[in-house]
Nucleic acid binder design. Structure first.
Lengths: 220, 220
DNA sequence: ATGAAAGCGCTAACAC
DNA sequence: GTGTTAGCGCTTTCAT
């Protein structure tokens, strides 16, 4: 069963399309009787305004695209929740996509979301993208296209607003905590050692170890 | 910086819009020279065809909407992965949405995805939707609109294709397994006791206990 | 080789 | 109170 349009309704009632448009939008310009009949018919036939057409007309989709690298990660799921909550509160919908830590998938998703589909983009970079520094696509977007915000996994090469965690400090403090406890062999293990986040944590870890060593030397 | 359209390019080169359209689409109809200049200019200015317009024209978006109740659940994440994989392989993108087990959120999402945004819908019902049997919206969709497939959390009241797990059997077998082990007090605990899935598992559980009891009576 | 025109579904300014 | 027109950005006949 094909989808019904204003045109179909207009033909049925033998009136103009704009009349139908006004009728379904409950305009005061339309006579009470005709309006009622049209609305009834529209409802019966499950008329729904085509969003594509509306979005094209308004040059706005009221949706934000979000790309996260990995959805098996609780952190990203939480972020997704948060973004969606605030977005909804402000009349926006979100489209959440997963790059799966792959540069290719990220690019394809970007391609999909870009140009028309969304009004803005919120992205946390795939590890591969960070490692290879393949940020041409993102740069292009940040330069001229839709609003872009990077979070957590960011890149200095892309000029845009960013929301980040102080991973260096986190790595430092965590390591220091264990060292202060008297632990002798504190290992650093990370599944994302090559991402910006992993690298910063590692730096923090190293600094803490170095500091301990330096302190010991001094007190020797 | 506003997004550039065919119109803008046409104005710049003082040619018609259709000429530009053909040029960017690398049509043979356009002279080699002009085509090259237009393509270059288009690239420099980050021209991207507006997908909204294209989708409207093609009356197809090549995207599928997926609604899952909960993304902190590994099962749904896996399903999401699977759907996305197959969809991508077939030239489709997916928009994944979370109903958060809430009927209201599910309805809103449905509203958002319906009419134009996606070519088809894959849904696992929110618990609240199942409990309250509020399936008017879904029914309407299954009746006349876009293709709909339900999975896991389904409803008999909606006539459409469904992909399900034999939860009754699963509950039965699991319980039986423990009973056979000699366990005396096998409890049934479920966070989704009111969903179709939870109920069926409970039925299976009950059946296994009943069977044990019956068997014992017989052998007495 | 290039352009004019129609149309996708819709709204809005402006007639009548 | 109802219709006409233009336009959102694009493709696609069908001229020229």
């Amino acid at each position: 069963m094909k989808k019904i349009t204003l045109k179909d309704i207009a033909r049925y009632f033998d009136v103009s399309i704009s009349t139908v448009s006004k009728a379904v939008n409950d305009s005061h310009e339309i006579s009470r009787d005709l309006k009622q009949r049209i609305q009834e018919y529209a409802k019966e036939n499950h008329y729904k305004p085509n969003k594509l057409a509306l979005n094209l007309l308004n040059r706005s989709t009221k949706t934000i695209g979000v790309i996260v690298p990995n959805i098996l990660n609780y952190f990203f799921v939480q972020v997704l929740y948060g973004i969606e909550k605030i977005a909804n509160e402000n009349g926006y919908n979100i489209i959440s996509c997963i790059s799966d830590e792959s540069f290719e998938k990220e690019s394809k998703t970007l391609e999909f979301l870009d140009s028309g589909t969304v009004d803005g983009l919120i992205i946390s970079l795939a590890e591969e993208t960070q490692v290879k520094e393949r940020i041409e696509g993102l740069q292009e977007i940040s330069e001229s296209q839709i609003p872009l915000v990077l979070f957590d996994r960011v890149s200095d090469l892309i000029a845009c607003d960013k929301v980040i965690v102080d991973d260096f400090e986190a790595g430092y403090k965590t390591t220091k905590f264990f060292l202060n406890l008297g632990c002798k062999n504190v290992a650093f293990v990370s599944p994302i050692g090559k991402s910006s986040v992993g690298k910063l944590r590692l730096e923090g870890y190293k600094k803490a170890r170095k500091k301990l060593k330096d302190d010991m030397m001094r007190n020797w």
